[in-house]
């Protein structure tokens, strides 16, 4: 799963847009222009570092919060095979979260700081996970559409200028493609199943389609930091281009399923060679980002509750490790004294 083009919001001034032209900065940009990777020990502008920390941590948080709507169906998965696949998928996502937090730590920020930012509501995660997963078909739709949109976003990031992020993406993309195929296969089984199953699949498509399109973030004209991110090769393809590509790929897949896209304006445009589609409800997008989506409060409450309920466990693990260290040290001292 993936975070989205909510990396930097319009009107956010915490990340400077201007770039200086010191010798260090010129050399940095030259390296990027030559498609070389920036590694953790290399010099980098503060804006570059901050943009990356924000983007990678949002992505990590999205993986972790994304476990909740899918985890919601583990205990109700309809067969042992589906249950095993869902467990494995969520395990992959937790692994992506860990992997991305580690990539972030190479930028001099601790995982603890990042997790605290999430729990305090200061950090964003993908808005898609603030929608509820109400039927089994949602597990199919999330895999097909949400992971599908994630892959669109992530494939270009494999070429991101920052080495650790780029390498994380290569690995993550492989697993996401697998998840996407699994999701589509769930949809296919439902669409070819009983009338009730087909209805379930259509209902899931109706609810997840528009939020999936929102995953690509605001229109390019409303995304002020995109140009800078493009120059830095943190972002490599624009929000609107990715969104269009996703629509073009997904519409025929829906046709194959025999499902109807919930967009009356959707039609093939022979002139442009793309599908035209209706206007996204940006007010809904804005509201979800501001915390007013159907499940924002539940997701944050769940994360905070798990964190609170686990506090004594983490404290015990630290205390025990400290005891072991102390005992080992005492033993070394005793041996030395003999």
């Amino acid at each position: 799963m993936y975070t989205q083009g909510l990396d930097v919001q319009k009107g956010d001034v915490s990340i400077p847009l201007e770039q200086g032209d010191s010798e260090l900065e010129r050399r940095f940009q030259a390296k990027i222009d030559a498609d070389e990777k920036i590694e953790p020990k290399d010099w980098m502008p503060e804006g570059y570092r901050k943009t990356l920390v924000r983007q990678i941590s949002q992505h990590a948080h999205s993986e972790v919060v994304g476990m909740l709507p899918e985890g919601n169906w583990i205990t109700r998965a309809p067969s042992l095979r589906r249950k095993a696949a869902l467990l494995a998928k969520i395990q992959d996502e937790a692994g992506h979260g860990l992997y991305l937090y580690s990539a972030c730590e190479t930028l001099n920020v601790s995982r603890q700081e990042l997790v605290d930012q999430l729990l305090e509501g200061k950090a964003k995660y993908s808005s898609i996970f603030n929608y509820p997963s109400t039927t089994w078909a949602d597990i199919g739709a999330i895999g097909w559409l949400v992971d599908g949109a994630a892959i669109m976003n992530q494939v270009p990031l494999q070429r991101c200028s920052y080495g650790p992020y780029s390498r994380a993406m290569i690995r993550i993309c492989k697993e996401e493609s697998f998840h996407q195929r699994q999701g589509y296969e769930i949809m296919l089984t439902l669409a070819r199943g009983t009338a009730a199953q087909k209805r379930m699949a259509q209902d899931a498509l109706n609810r997840w389609w528009w939020p999936s399109l929102m995953m690509f973030g605001p229109n390019d004209k409303d995304s002020p930091h995109s140009a800078q991110s493009m120059r830095w090769k943190i972002k490599r393809v624009s929000n609107d281009e990715l969104r269009q590509k996703f629509v073009d790929v997904t519409v025929p897949q829906a046709d194959f399923l025999g499902l109807t896209m919930p967009d009356p304006a959707l039609r093939w445009n022979a002139g442009s060679g793309h599908y035209d589609f209706g206007e996204i409800d940006w007010e809904e997008f804005k509201q979800v980002l501001q915390g007013n989506g159907p499940c924002n409060r539940e997701r944050m409450r769940d994360r905070n509750r798990a964190h609170e309920r686990g506090r004594w466990v983490r404290e015990a693990a630290l205390a025990h490790a400290e005891k072991r260290r102390a005992r080992a040290a005492a033993q070394t001292t005793a041996v030395a004294a003999e």
């Binding site: 972790v64 476990m67 909740l68 985890g71 583990i74 205990t75 249950k83 467990l87 969520i90 937790a94 979260g97 860990l98 937090y101 769940d302 509750r305 798990a306 309920r309 686990g310 506090r311 466990v313 983490r314």
Partner: peptide, 10 residues
């Protein structure tokens, strides 16, 4: 499986 997403650490 009921623990998924609710464990003390990732």
């Amino acid at each position: 499986g009921e623990w998924c997403g609710h464990a003390p650490v990732l």
